[in-house]
Structure formats: structure tokens, C-alpha cells
Nucleic acid binder design. Structure first.
Lengths: 114, 114
DNA sequence: GGCTTGTGTAAGTCATAACTTACCGTAAGT
DNA sequence: ACTTACGGTAAGTTATGACTTACACAAGCC
């Protein structure tokens, strides 16, 4: 029960911020505590904490308290949820693309039928 | 030369806005002109135009002028770029996850080696 | 037990971007 | 050619959210 992502849209919104993407990039290589994480960034440690909260709420990160430090890691399930969302979008995009190509092949409606 | 997406990060930022996600959702079923698009939304037509520009710049949408109206459609290549980005992230997330699981199996460093 | 280290939270400031109204250009219809 | 419909752009306002400093709390070390 490592709690799954709430919804992919929250995750997308979380990844929109450059600093948060930088955090995610830093976590690609492995889990890190907050201090280490903030050391490579240009913003203050509290700012990092706030971003970590947003990413965690979006289901993209998981915390493991280890003594006095809190180690953050990428949550594979959160990334997977995003992937599923985009896969479905990709599927529909292709279908719509094909449908429009078919419509252009048989120009039944130069005008919208209203 | 339907011009490809600039980078996945711009696309993510574009999808962060709820109104823009609503536009994308509406385009899943097929291409639409601006008027039709704005009709289903709560914001004004100019606002929709601005959002369409952002989505187009991100490589997620394509325009087809048809007479006086401009028909917008999902750009499969833009969605594909996003998918590739997330696939790579997913890959690293799994690797990091496995690495940490291995570290926990052989606890060489209860402390960070600094 | 007090001190230090590591981190999350609160309050407030400031920058960004989403939205509105007004306007302009362009393509079709009569 | 004039009118109408459609959509992009400009200018200005407002709301959102990212950042800072200051503070509070918990866990290890002496």
C-alpha cells in the first residue's frame, strides 16, 4: 500500500515547474535526503521541502525516514500512471488523425454540417 | 516537415493548465475549429486562442486553415515526444528503485559516506 | 540533559501567467 | 463592393504559486 498516484493530471502539474523537474532529474540516479537534494539546486532548503511535498502529493515521490533525515525517491507507480495516461492520449490522437485523413480522402463536408 | 515538438518540458508545462488539458480532452475525439472548441469551455474565445498558441508552440497541436476557420488537431508527434521522455524517466526510476532495494539488502552505509 | 543536525511549516512578498474587453485582419456570401 | 462570420493580437487586471526568512519539532551525539 505504497499509495498510488491520485491522478495523472496532478502529476503533470507537478512536473510543470522547472525546479521540481530538476529535483526529479536528481532523483533519477538514486534516492537522496533533502539536504543533498537542496545542495545541487539554486533555491533554499525550505523551497525544496515545499516542492517535495507537491511531488509527493502527486504520487511521484516516496519518503523513507532514516534517522533524522528523510530520504526521497522516485515512485515508479506515479511515473507509470503518467505513462498510462499519455499512452491513452497517444492512442486517441492517432485514431483522430487517421479519421481526419479519411475525411480528407472523401470530402463529404467542405462545410460543417451544423 | 510538420515541425516536431521543441522539447518535452515545454509540452509538460503546456499540459499543466486545466483549461489546456480540457482543450486536449476535447480534441481527443477529433479535430475542431476554435469556435466549437470555445463553446464547450467556460472561458472566452480569445483565452482559447491564447491557449491554442501555447499548445501549438509546445508541438502538441497542429492547425489546418479551412476557409475562414482554423481547425486544430492533436499532433501525434508531440504526444510521442512526451511518451519517450516518460519512458526514459520510468526506466531510470525502476533502476534506482532496484538499486536502493539492493542497498537495503546489503546495508553497507547506514550513514552517508560524505 | 543540553547541543547540534536535519527537516517541515507559517507568514509574507513578488513574479508569472491566465483572463477579460476592445480591436484588427481575412475569407466567404449576397 | 459591402456585410457578416471567424479568429488572432494588444493592453490591462487579477489571481496563483514560487520563493524568502523565521520558527518549531524530532533524532542522534557529547
Amino acid at each position: 500500500m505504497t499509495y498510488t498516484s491520485p491522478n495523472p493530471e496532478t502529476a503533470i502539474a507537478a512536473l510543470a515547474d522547472p525546479t521540481r523537474r530538476a529535483i526529479v532529474e536528481r532523483l533519477r540516479h538514486g534516492a537522496l535526503p533533502v539536504g543533498e537534494l537542496a545542495h545541487g539546486l539554486t533555491v533554499s532548503r525550505p523551497a525544496v521541502s515545499q516542492h517535495l511535498k507537491v511531488l509527493s502529493d502527486a504520487g511521484l515521490l516516496e519518503v523513507t525516514p532514516r534517522g533524522t533525515r528523510r530520504v526521497y525517491a522516485l515512485a515508479p507507480e506515479g511515473v507509470a500512471a503518467l505513462r498510462r495516461y499519455l499512452d491513452a492520449l497517444w492512442d486517441d490522437a492517432l485514431a483522430a488523425f487517421a479519421a481526419e485523413a479519411g475525411q480528407r480522402a472523401s470530402p463529404l463536408d467542405t462545410e460543417t454540417p451544423e
